[in-house]
Design a protein around this nucleic acid. Structure first.
Lengths: 237, 237
DNA sequence: GATTATAATTTGTATATACATGTTTTGCAA
DNA sequence: TTGCAAAACATGTATATACAAATTATAATC
């Protein structure tokens, strides 16, 4: 947290989550926030823009920054969230089973990730158990030239934490697709399907800050346990 | 288009879509764009931020604004898009059937929309036919105090166009949820389910710029025809 | 007291400057 | 030619000012 406006953003998020500012009410004016954080108005406005983009406030001209009601609608899976972050927030007991951790050559995935056809990729297959049921199957492909070493222990805890904090890679954005597909033999092997014959599939291409594509993930969910929640601003045509 | 930075944004989007700037390459530098659009750097940066937020570019410090490849991954249903906008973009033949257009009192929906319990809501039920199959069932509830008049003709063409362009309401943001649920009798009545016993349900709460909740929508899709595509930036913890 | 006009408040846009930080190019020296 | 240092270039952050536009509070008038 070295940037002033990011720090102010986190401060305000914390205040809103604590209930300091009630939903429907307004934040202090930009002028007041300038005084409180001892900074310029443009810096405050950058922080407020972050709040606005993430669905915490709606700025209304002449009125102020109206605090939005996030509780009415829970936000467990918005943005780019890893399974561990999700479980932490839900506070449920969960378990991760690592079924495969190998170096493979898959031309099709390589093409998608814009890397050399012959280069190696880490393939990680994990199932997620929540409340005693294995309901999510995650298949990850990572570029081995960017993530040289990977252990079962890392796969068991959190890939993202290792990649960001240990390797220092800057995970920046992702393109994702959600579709519904028939179950595969793999799904039947690793999941407690409970009679379901279809799964919700989230395919993600994950990129670093320098636009390098470095990961492809296929996350397969049992339909009755799947939920995706999103906050979207309308971009005027 | 009265705002300079919004206009510049649209200009650059058009250029990117025309292929003026190839994916993987960079846009002209901020300095050059200042000269071309005869404006200040901050104004250019506001336009570039819009491009970044919408997945057109990735800014890399010291390098420039790298153009992202949107074609590799189609973007039909990102953000807040109405069915008509979607169909227009896909260019497929489609048809809308209006099954119901009535004024109702539904306390549960009223509470969700923060309006008087006894007030009237427009209820609009429509099915969407693409390629000869009815695959989407849309149920809309709109506050009658905000949308006084509604005709079958409007429901048949585009609600959003009418609301934004004719009524001048400022649709600003939405909270949406995607889940999978068993089919209902209504689904079976209005959709060609083709043997499917589950549907993908998108529930949306739509808000105006002044944070007024004014619409609740439930969009029910046949699973094999459903696709949701999203661009997400990672917000650092 | 109610309505209207005015002023104060609040956010939106546009512009300008200074410096920091990362990348690329250039040029000098070995 | 190669290698390294310096300069040039590109984006990031912080600050400042001026004015526009919408809302709210205040004062004045009938």
């Amino acid at each position: 947290m070295k940037n002033k406006y990011v720090e102010i953003y986190h401060n305000l998020v914390k205040d809103i989550q604590k209930g300091e500012y009630a939903a429907g009410g307004t934040l202090p004016s930009e002028h007041e926030l300038c005084a409180r954080f001892e900074t310029s108005r443009e810096t405050i406005r950058k922080a407020l823009n972050l709040l606005s983009q993430n669905g915490y406030i709606q700025k209304v001209r002449g009125k102020g920054s109206v605090v939005l009601d996030r509780d009415k609608f829970e936000f467990p899976v918005s943005g780019l969230t890893s399974f561990k972050e999700l479980s932490d927030r839900l506070g449920q007991s969960f378990q991760t089973h690592v079924h495969e951790l190998t170096l493979v050559k898959e031309a099709k995935v390589c093409r998608q990730l814009n890397c050399q056809e012959g280069s190696y990729l880490w393939k990680v297959v994990r199932s997620r158990e929540i409340g005693g049921e294995r309901i999510i199957l995650d298949k990850d492909y990572l570029r081995q030239d960017l993530v040289p070493d990977l252990t079962k222990d890392i796969a068991q805890t959190s890939l993202y934490h290792y990649i960001e904090n240990e390797l220092g890679l800057d995970i920046s954005f992702a393109k994702k697709e959600i579709v519904v597909e028939p179950v595969t033999a793999e799904d039947e092997e690793f999941l407690d399907l409970n009679g379901h014959d279809q799964v919700v599939v989230i395919r993600s291409y994950v990129y670093l800050g320098d636009t390098t594509a470095f990961q492809f993930t296929e996350s397969r969910h049992r339909p009755d346990k799947f939920q995706f929640v999103d906050f979207a601003r309308r971009t005027k045509v």
